[in-house]
Amino acid sequence: MKKLINNPESVVKEMIEGLLAAHPNYLRKLENINVIVRKDAPVEGKVGLVSGGGSGHEPAHAGYVGYGMLDAACPGEVFTSPTPDQMYEAIKAVNSGKGVLLIIKNYTGDVMNFEMAREMAQAEGIEVDQVIVNDDVAVENSTWTQGRRGIAGTVFVHKIAGAKAQEGASLKEVKRVAEKVIANVRSMGMALTPCTVPAAGKPSFTLQEDEMEIGIGIHGEPGTHREKIKHVDEIVEHLMDKIINDLPYKSGDEVAVMINGMGGTPLMELYIANRKVAEILKEKDIKVYKTYVGEFMTSLEMSGFSITLLKLDEELKALLDAKADTPAFKQL
């Protein structure tokens, strides 16, 4: 394992210290617990938005804490859901009396830990509701399983629900737009190389020099299948085919596009991927309203990327365009 770290046991702690040192105008940490909140939390007259998940996905989620997005983020250990006490403290810290919405990625651990936190907060009389993001089309959505995973599409939920909350909307209204995003967002990713959880010390899977994993999760979970590497245009075609047919996105639709690097992919390659995405959308007469290219939801040093499409209507467009000012996402 070759990493810029001091000690595998202290990566989360030291990352948080560096994050706070970099963004003192945006963020503060609650005492004695790993919860990052907006500097001015709780914001009067605003529904509080709390998200969280394992660390290793930076800038998710702490990078999205700030004006027009999240009020708090709970970073867990690397790739491990945070614990209920973190979430419970986050809920209390951001509740201004208007209630709190939890934005949860659909993983058993995240869902259960947030559920315990919600029970604790509700027992204290705090109004708490939740939405569960499950945008990854790679995994089967069957009632027999946990259902689809939540991946990069979650950032659109943060942005749009965050904008709605910033307007002073009620918890019910904020939840409604969050669910609208979830209903209209789809993603899929792939990996060229695995990633190594610092405490594990070795990669969670191996890929041959000429192999890639299609449908990879953001925790290095194996995807749908493995195959010989192809040109990026062909890879994009495959991912887009799965994504577009899933909703489905149709001729005349308007979408926001996110090309998300997994941590170890040059921006150059992401733009090359986006070139093909734009071409396919044009062919299908799907209009691109806005494109985001960069690292939004990473997977440590994994090289690979995911594509996310969000179908927009006038309401979602306005909320996407609303002001946001956070360390990792700015809309001016």
Partner: peptide
């Protein structure tokens, strides 16, 4: 519950 995280913590 407060230290394990993941699925196995709450379980």
């Amino acid at each position: 519950v407060s230290t394990v995280g993941g699925a196995s913590g709450p379980l």
